[in-house]
Design a protein around this nucleic acid. Structure first.
Length: 509
DNA sequence: TTCCGACAGTGGGGTCGCAAT
DNA sequence: ATTGCGACCCCACTATCGGAA
């Protein structure tokens, strides 16, 4: 198939908001693909090339764009683009950057202008068609005439939408239904909704397992005999980075198992270390001094038996039997008071909060349903707007991303009574608020660059955060974690804003 | 007819390895 | 030795569509 055809479908999808129309357009093009083109094309349409990391980002694209003029005629094939991605992904070592730019420029020169834009978006993982996994799933079902539920289950259990599409469209009878759990192949992890308090969460779930929520990285551990593999939330294989997790899995009194859990760094007294330290160790190829400890909270398969469709009550019992000291702390209860107590205990032990899980729920791979509900405390502070950046996409033309400052009464970072930047946020803003602040900040403008408008420090905004962390990015040495706008505080003056000292007191350790 | 679940989009913080400078 | 890039951990929240109630 010509790439042009994919690009036209992508553009048509971007032009409509109707998900049914997007799905219909996708289904039509899926049907026309040769079997060998299905996996590459699905990857492209989702902005996730099947090759995984291709090594091309904004910068590489800019360098290449400068060198290339668009082709007049659409001659590129989907398969050719796939081969180009293959070559790009294979580049490494000295000279690879130059070679990558050369390959990209060559590719660019063979593409028409719409194709160039499409390729760039695919490589950036930002296709902007309004049709990602959810719509693609519907489209695969529509194109193949298979029930959505069957397609969804195959996709979740294989973690691979492209391969699922290929099976649905070209596989043998029953091939989709046959997709099941395989020890060694990662499954999309189940996700959690959120609630303000543990009591609220239990009110929603009914009887629940109320478990500590740890501030680390999600892991999925597969063991078949002595063979162990460890995957991230996004199904990347990180076995070689986590030898201590591999060792822990080998200790368990089982032959085959798939476990869901979290890993994080602890100090000498088993208190959790800051997330940054976990990440430092997690991201490193070589062994480091920090040890990462696994905690398991679910078991999806055990010695030949799939457990994902069993109620959590049973899975939890099996986990307790096999995971021993690696089992997550928690309690089963329907009592909001007890849920609140477990939550307080988790926080007192230095953890993030709790996850409340309906005790009779199955393991809904890849879904963010209401069966699992996370609860974390939110801290709020009044900060001062120092500026805002122009938004992107549907926020184009609006000042969106706020620069936030804490008061600096002592003048540690400038004039006494000034403000020191501690983070940014674009979250929590409604369309009405975006319109309002774009206008208001214009009146308060003190200077501007291409990306941002800086304002006199006169506006106070209440910001919700999960906490603060050490930062080398900001002068105050700290940054806000998961900052979001709660509301503007017209009733407060900048002189009443929270100080850098107040925020600093939140730093762990 | 209204309600609500699921999705997509809009970006935030940090860490690492690697190639280029 | 330092810097910039790309990949990938963690993530909250709003708007919208379309099926459920």
């Amino acid at each position: 198939m010509l790439l042009e055809e994919l690009v036209e479908v992508a553009d048509a999808m971007a032009a409509t908001r109707s998900r049914l129309a997007k799905s219909a357009a996708l289904a039509a093009v899926l049907r026309r693909l040769d079997e060998s083109e299905v996996v590459p094309a699905v990857g492209m349409l989702l902005g996730r090339p099947r090759q995984g990391r291709v090594g091309v980002g904004w910068r590489s694209l800019q360098s290449a764009a400068a060198a290339a003029e668009a082709s007049e005629r659409a001659t590129l094939e989907v398969a050719e683009l796939d081969r180009a991605f293959e070559r790009l992904a294979g580049l490494e070592g000295a000279g690879s950057t130059g070679e990558r730019t050369r390959l990209l420029a060559e590719l660019s020169a063979r593409a028409t202008e719409p194709e160039q834009r499409f390729i760039a978006r695919v490589l950036l993982g930002d296709v902007r068609t309004g049709a990602l996994e959810g719509v693609m799933l519907e489209a695969i079902a529509e194109a193949s005439g298979r029930p959505v539920a069957v397609v969804r289950r195959a996709a979740m259990l294989s973690g691979d939408l492209g391969e699922t599409a290929r099976l649905a469209l070209h596989g043998d009878e029953g091939a989709l239904e046959a997709v099941g759990l395989v020890v060694g192949r990662p499954v999309l992890p189940m996700l959690a909704a959120s609630a303000p308090t543990a009591a609220d969460a239990v009110a929603g779930t009914g009887e629940a397992s109320v478990e500590y929520k740890l501030d680390g990285a999600r892991i999925q551990v597969h063991r078949a005999g002595d063979e162990v593999r460890v995957f991230t939330r996004n199904l990347a294989d990180i076995t070689h980075r986590l030898p201590e997790v591999v060792a822990a899995a080998r200790e368990l009194p089982v032959r085959d198992v798939i476990l869901d859990g979290e890993t994080l760094a602890l100090d000498e007294s088993d208190a959790p270390r800051p997330f940054q330290e976990t990440m430092s160790r997690f991201g490193a190829e070589a062994a480091r001094e920090t040890v990462l400890r696994p905690w398991f909270f679910d078991v999806l398969h055990l010695d030949g038996r799939d457990l994902i469709d069993e109620p959590l009550r049973l899975r939890r019992a099996e986990l307790a039997r096999i995971a021993g000291r690696y089992a997550i702390p928690g309690e089963v209860t329907a009592d909001p008071e007890i849920a609140e107590r477990v939550s307080r205990e988790a926080l007192a032990a230095g953890h993030e909060g709790v996850v409340v899980k309906a005790i009779d729920s199955a393991y809904a791979a890849g879904r963010r349903g209401s069966s699992w509900v996370k609860v974390k405390p939110v801290y709020t502070y009044d900060l001062v707007v120092l500026g805002a950046e122009w938004g992107y996409g549907r926020r184009t033309g609006f000042l969106s991303n706020l620069h936030l400052g804490a008061r600096d009464p002592e003048g540690e970072f400038g004039e006494p009574g000034g403000f020191v930047m501690v983070g940014k946020t674009f979250k929590g803003l409604t369309d009405a608020l975006l319109r309002w602040q774009t206008e208001r900040f214009g009146e308060l403008e003190s200077s501007r660059t291409e990306q941002a408008v800086f304002v006199r420090p006169e506006i106070v905004v209440e910001i919700g955060i999960d906490g603060v962390q050490r930062s080398s990015r900001y002068p105050g040495g700290l940054a806000l974690r998961f900052a979001r706008v709660k509301r503007y505080r017209d009733d407060k003056s900048p002189a009443e804003a929270d100080t850098i000292q107040t925020l600093r007191a939140l730093l762990p350790g």
